[in-house]
Design a protein around this nucleic acid. Sequence first.
DNA 1: TAATCGTGGGT
DNA 2: TACCCAAGATT
Length: 358
Amino acid sequence: MNRKARQLLQWYDTHHRLLPWRIAPAQRLAGEVADPYRVWLSEIMLQQTTVEAVKAYFRTFVARWPTVRALAAASDDEVMRAWAGLGYYSRARNLKKCAEIITGEMDGEFPSTFEGLKALPGIGDYTAAAIAAIAFDRPAAVVDGNVERVVTRLFAITTPLPAAKAEIRATMQAITPEIRPGDFAQGMMDLGATICTPRRPACTLCPVNDGCKGLQGGYPEVFPVKAPKKKRPVRLGAAFVAISPGGSVYLRKRPASGLLGGMAEVPCTGWTARVDGDTSANAAPFPAQWSDSGSISHVFTHFELRLTVYRADDIPEQAIGAGWWSVPDELPREALPTVMKKAIAAAIPDAFKGRQIA
DNA sequence: TAATCGTGGGT
DNA sequence: TACCCAAGATT
């Protein structure tokens, strides 16, 4: 085993984070192996998402669906409702698809190889390598944002991301040990999350500082070098909150693909990342006494959306298109993305009973 | 390769 | 305020 891997594993043994999806150290030392289902579920949830945000969702999911078979047996809507608020909703759609494939075509067993895992929906290079290493003890090169930072610093890689990805992966592969590859991968990520941080890394506490080219150069924090990013446009639109005499809100389902695909919404004008929508009450989905309830702003990855919110009361609970009327008690359990909860809360301040929306 | 795809927290 | 960042995948 190479020197860096040995140092990193020794550090991980005493400094690893205790997380709900990891097996306890004592169990690990006793030879117990991680449950591939829990590893997979956590890795999907953790894609571009902070550990803190994932913890509660992970606990909810495993309590409700303890096995991949249980998840496969759930309805699409149940899964989308449970995922609401976590973002990147294609992950939830692919999660369900993947569970169905594993249950229906693989006898409930996850593939144990990188290639087999990567062929499944929602599993790309990172996730396939992570599951292979953590759940199946395969020496796959696990490269996430933490590893990109740690590796570019260790080896002073000056190629900008994303062009540097191939070089980083090859370097990670070269230092990944045959023994304990899963712990090595998790150790690299823990190191990036706690010591080798984006700003002001704690190099004096780093277990591999003796061989770090970035530290030797004097400015480890300049790594990884990244290509310049474009600025985020502002888009406009309107949202319409129709309320029945009983306090129900009219909702409809968004198209299965694209932004917020498959999630619930209040009727909106046709805003997209590229095009503004109408912001006037004239654009309402049906005629009513629409009154201005102010506006909300929501920041997506690639654009900012400003919605003018309109409200209309005492609308009879009649059929309108393909939507449905959601009673007050059900509203918090609908598959509403955060931007829609904000819009509804602008029109009905206590719609979510003071619960934290964002 | 470049866009698309959420949300929350930190500085 | 305005960025940056977070266990990326898909098209």
